[in-house]
Simulated assay, not measured.
Amino acid sequence: MSRPTQSLHVATWNLNNAVEERSHRQAALARSLDLDLLLVQEANPRSLRTFTQQAGFDWAVSTDDLAIMLPRQGRRWPLPVAVLGRGPRPRAAKLIIDAPLPERIIVVEIDTHIGPLTAVAYHAPPGVNWKLKKVEQALLLSRWLATVDGSIVIGADMNTPDIDHPDRDAVRTHWHTGMAKLNGGPGDDLVFGGTPTHTLDDAFRRWLDDHPDELGRIRAQRPDGPLAVSHRTGRTSTSPGTPRRYDTIWISKHLRVLTMNYDYDDALRAGSDHALVHSTLTTTH
């Protein structure tokens, strides 16, 4: 795949706990895209090292690698999130240990050919299980972002929004501000809504801002959204389920989007239930 010089090809992907042959198919798909950086959720600890090698990456850091930093506190440890990359290993890797569920976020600081970068893999806890923890986790992420300088990219399985409307102001997360179950508190729309209060932006919406014809095509096909399909909730052998755009790349103001792709069908054939979302980024100056 040819791409502009001085750019970074970044992806996010929920691997859906893949092992063995399914993991090999996923690695082949990732390798075919010539990625520089992959931010993953639901990696299988037994297959991650092999996946990393087969997909053409030089290193991987997962929350399991850093688990010694935090007691498990008697709860089940989820499948790890991880950052995989090419080139020099990260200068630093950490958990945000004051998060309600720190095992669902990993942060690495790396040097890339477009400059220093803070890369984050994030897996939102499902609200049906974790209730208000989902909101607390998102708000903690927003507060943490305010402490970080320089270029930032987040690959997230957000487990939201409920309505991914083409109009930013009409986006509705599952736990949005004003809902009775929040008892007057803020919702995760402040973090993952159409107009978040932090300084990062949804890379796909940023790209659509620069490609109004594509936004118009999406609006004509799906007037109430989603902007793209990255997952289907309630999917069974007899029902296609409800289309969602749960998987996103978020970028700081220092970065510009050159390309944006949601590879849903290829990702399903490779054995995931989430799209492989990838974007070519460069700096704004």
Rank of each mutant, 00 (worst) to 15 (best):
H9L: 14
T12A: 12
N14Y: 01
N16D: 05
N16R: 14
N17E: 10
A18M: 05
E20K: 12
R25S: 10
A27F: 00
L29R: 03
L29K: 08
L33G: 03
L33K: 13
L38H: 02
V40E: 05
E42A: 04
A43C: 11
R46T: 05
S47L: 06
T50E: 15
D65I: 02
I68A: 15
M69S: 13
P78K: 05
G87K: 07
A92M: 11
A93E: 01
A93T: 03
L101M: 15
R104W: 04
V107Q: 06
I114F: 12
A121W: 02
Y122S: 03
Y122L: 09
Y122G: 00
L132P: 03
Q137N: 13
L139M: 14
L139V: 14
W144I: 10
D149F: 00
I163P: 04
I163H: 10
D164G: 02
H165R: 01
D167R: 13
D167M: 08
R168N: 06
A170I: 00
A170Y: 02
T173H: 00
M179G: 15
G185N: 09
D189A: 09
G193N: 03
G193D: 01
G193I: 01
G194Y: 04
G194F: 08
P196S: 11
F204T: 05
R205P: 01
I218A: 12
D224H: 13
P226R: 01
V229D: 04
R232T: 12
G234W: 11
G234N: 13
P240D: 14
T242Y: 02
P243R: 06
R244L: 05
R245F: 00
I249F: 03
W250S: 07
L255T: 07
Y264V: 07
G271Q: 09
S272G: 07
T284E: 14
H285T: 06
